[in-house]
Design a protein around this nucleic acid. Structure first.
Lengths: 120, 120
DNA sequence: TTGTTTTTACGAAAAACTTCGTAGTTATTT
DNA sequence: AAATAACTACGAAGTTTTTCGTAAAAACAA
């Protein structure tokens, strides 16, 4: 249950747009980089085998749906990332993320709220 | 400048312990998992070629040193990770990290301080 | 109905990453 | 001095991930 970078790209399309055909996903990805139709197809077939996607085969063009939630997947990836890149120190990661990425005042407020909840 | 997982393991050893021989690194890694001496050697040679490590060859056992700083490397990895896993939303990542990882009150305080600085 | 397009399935090549064996050299031990 | 151990260099095999070409089937158009 640890999608590769390419699989993640596809999951993002499905999370954002809901169920899609291979063509729809491929056209979406095509906006950002070169990628052949059969390449996308193959990925989605593999992801289906792995259980990352479900598919509806009633129509000739199959429709695929993400079988894993965005939050769960991101959590899994994050856990792994904190381990490998930050040796388990989530707070160091948070500090670096806040320090070097543009975050809107709204987002900062939201984070502070969570912080309050955690502190009490 | 984007170390793989294995390369990162080695960098962590060098960041924590300073310059090391292959044997020292190998023994360190060996505490956590099976890994052959020549495997570690090969990695460190490759990393040296890539410019990730420097080495001192005056002694027979060469001594290797990290050529990239921990902060810079983590920043690079983090940028990449925010992109691929969180579609660029650093605040979502921060929220998830704070929500699911144990963070000590001290660390929370430190984060709050940074938050204050960013807000004003 | 015949040819063109769309789609799936399959296989396999290409690329990136991981792992280790072997050979040769230098040091150490007996 | 001879055997043993430690170390580097090299090559290559094993894995995982990415990429696509080709063939066959289904839908569509002329």
């Amino acid at each position: 249950m640890k999608p590769t970078d390419s699989e993640l790209e596809i999951l993002h399309v499905l999370w954002a747009n809901g169920p899609c055909t291979v063509r729809q996903v491929n056209e979406n990805l095509g906006q950002f980089r070169e990628i052949g139709y059969t390449t996308t197809l193959k990925f989605m077939q593999l992801m289906h085998e792995k259980g990352l996607l479900t598919r509806d085969e009633t129509a000739r063009s199959h429709t695929y749906t993400a079988a894993v939630s965005q939050a769960d997947t991101q959590q899994t990836l994050l856990d792994r990332f904190v381990e490998t890149a930050f040796k388990g120190s989530a707070s160091t990661l948070v500090m670096q993320a806040l320090g070097h990425h543009k975050t809107t005042p709204d987002e900062l407020a939201e984070i502070r709220e969570l912080l309050d909840k955690l502190t009490k």
